[in-house]
């Protein structure tokens, strides 16, 4: 009896240890961003060979100097504005194209629609690595290099396949009976979509909006390929590429930019991750 209690206690300790280790591993870089953002330079730039100076804590009072520099002395706000502009347009394009396609695949096209849906989803797997070279040619021909329009055009290539797939799942989860009842009541299919289906799919549309927007905020490769002027960059490109003067990194401001940008995205993303995973794995796992 005592033996079993001991085993349980050991298991408990093991569980908490494992949980702590995973969490520390995941969070440590964010903690490091936080420390760097608010440390004074003389606390920050102490060589790691000095073992008496502990880098894990504030040895001097924290400062807002780096954050102020970020907002007042760098193009960070312009990058935020560019990102918001591109993100809003991409979300709009995605919603207008992916929502009808999702409904069509869920309800109107039957068996071959299902195959087509899987086909569209598979294009999500075609990576930027295969496409950025031909895109750079296409963007050149269209005269769009170094403009936000290049990204507005290219980003839907990954948001549309994924969001079509997600919307298909949402529309499928709406009970068929509701739609059929409305049609018996004399609505046409189109009216059913507008008056019955869309109001029920608001949470789905919201999820798609969030995902398309976060995907845009996270994208780096296409932005790196197409955008070269600092004032046209998005946040995820500008911060790593342009927050450097000569060879000098302004680590305080740089980490402040990383922290201020990542944490809100991460929080919002976290709230929606389960739907995202459900969308990604449906088809492979029943249910």
């Amino acid at each position: 009896m005592r033996g079993r209690r001991l085993v349980r206690a050991v298991k408990r300790v093991g569980l908490y240890t494992a949980a702590s280790l995973f969490t520390i591993f995941a969070v440590f870089p964010f903690y490091w961003m936080f420390l760097t953002s608010f440390k004074q330079n003389r606390d920050l730039y102490v060589g790691a060979t000095n073992l008496r100076h502990i880098p894990w804590i504030f040895n001097e009072p924290p400062t807002l100097e780096h954050v102020q520099l970020l907002f007042a002395g760098t193009p960070y706000l312009i990058w935020l504005k560019n990102t918001a502009f591109i993100g809003a347009l991409v979300v709009l394009i995605t919603l207008v194209i992916a929502a009808p396609a999702g409904y069509s695949l869920a309800r109107l096209t039957g068996r071959w629609g299902e195959r087509l849906g899987i086909g569209i989803f598979l294009t999500y797997l075609v990576p930027p690595t295969l496409l950025f070279l031909p895109f750079s040619r296409v963007i050149n021909v269209l005269g769009l290099p170094n403009t936000p329009w290049a990204l507005v055009l290219v980003y839907p290539t990954f948001t549309i396949p994924f969001c079509t797939w997600l919307m298909m799942g949402f529309f499928r989860s709406i009970p068929r009976d509701i739609e059929e009842q409305a049609m018996i009541d004399g609505y046409s299919r189109l009216a059913v979509i507008g008056k019955v289906v869309l109001p029920l799919a608001v949470s789905g549309l919201l999820t798609v909006t969030i995902f398309a927007f976060t995907l845009v905020m996270q994208e780096f490769v296409y932005a790196l390929t197409f955008i070269s002027s600092v004032d046209k960059m998005t946040v995820s490109l500008g911060v790593p590429v342009a927050l450097v003067r000569g060879d000098v990194f302004y680590w305080g401001s740089l980490m402040a930019a990383c922290l201020i940008t990542s944490v809100p995205i991460a929080v919002v993303y976290n709230l929606f991750i389960d739907r995202f995973i459900a969308g990604l794995t449906s088809g492979a796992v029943k249910g």
Partner: peptide
């Protein structure tokens, strides 16, 4: 907390690691 690394933009997280 465990989900944060996946949700944060990859380019910004990579900069933190560079540092």
């Amino acid at each position: 907390l465990i989900l944060l690394p996946w949700a944060a933009p990859v380019s910004l997280a990579s900069m933190a690691w560079t540092w």
